[in-house]
Measured scan of single mutants.
Amino acid sequence: DFYRCHTCNTTDRNAICVNCIKKCHQGHDVEFIRHDRFFCDCGAGT
């Protein structure tokens, strides 16, 4: 499962994972996106 962060203006080409929300995007306006054509390269392994 992935998310888009409207606060940081993520686009259709990138998304964030749950670990990104916990570490970098906590309290931001995020939108849940189940699956799409992207991956998270944060290195958290999710």
Rank of each mutant, 00 (worst) to 15 (best):
T11H: 14
I33A: 08
K23F: 04
Y3D: 03
R37E: 15
R13S: 14
R13L: 11
A15E: 08
A44K: 12
I16E: 03
C8E: 02
I21M: 08
R34F: 09
Y3H: 09
H28C: 03
D12E: 11
D1A: 07
C20F: 00
D29S: 09
R13A: 14
C17M: 02
T11L: 08
A15I: 08
N19F: 09
I33H: 05
G45D: 10
R34A: 12
E31C: 07
T10N: 12
I33Y: 05
I21Q: 03
T7W: 00
I33F: 07
H6I: 15
C17P: 00
G45C: 05
T10Q: 08
T11C: 14
D36F: 06
C42P: 01
G45N: 05
R34H: 15
I16A: 05
C20S: 01
N9G: 12
C20Y: 00
I16G: 03
K23V: 07
C24T: 15
N9E: 11
C24P: 00
G27Q: 03
D36R: 09
K23T: 11
G43T: 13
H25G: 02
C17W: 00
V30D: 04
C17S: 02
F32V: 15
N9V: 12
D36A: 13
D36N: 14
H25W: 00
I16Q: 04
R34Q: 15
C24A: 12
R4E: 04
F39T: 13
H35M: 10
I33R: 09
R4Y: 13
R4K: 08
I16T: 05
C8M: 00
N14G: 07
C20V: 00
C5F: 02
G43R: 07
H25S: 02
F39V: 15
T11N: 11
Q26I: 08
H6D: 02
F39L: 10
I21D: 03
Q26H: 14
E31Q: 11
D12F: 08
C5N: 02
H25E: 00
N9I: 09
H6C: 06
I21K: 05
R34Y: 08
K22G: 09
T10Y: 10
N14V: 10
F2Q: 07
T11Y: 06
T11E: 09
D36K: 09
G43S: 10
R34E: 14
E31V: 08
G27V: 03
I21V: 11
E31A: 08
H28T: 06
H28G: 02
V18F: 09
G45P: 12
C42K: 01
I33E: 13
H25M: 02
T11A: 07
Y3F: 15
G27N: 15
N14W: 02
H25F: 00
C8N: 01
N9S: 13
F38S: 11
T7N: 03
F32Q: 10
N19H: 06
H35Y: 08
R4I: 07
C8K: 00
G43V: 08
N14Y: 05
H35Q: 15
T10H: 11
I33L: 14
T10F: 07
H6W: 08
F2K: 05
E31R: 09
T46R: 15
C20L: 01
H6F: 11
N9A: 11
C42N: 01
H28K: 02
D12H: 06
T11S: 14
T11G: 14
D1Y: 10
D41I: 08
C20R: 02
V18L: 13
V18R: 07
F2D: 01
H6A: 11
A15W: 03
C24G: 09
R4H: 04
F39N: 14
D29L: 04
C8D: 01
R13P: 06
R37S: 12
V30C: 07
C40W: 02
T11D: 14
G45W: 05
R34D: 15
D12Q: 15
V30A: 04
R34S: 09
D41G: 08
G45H: 11
T10I: 08
V18Y: 10
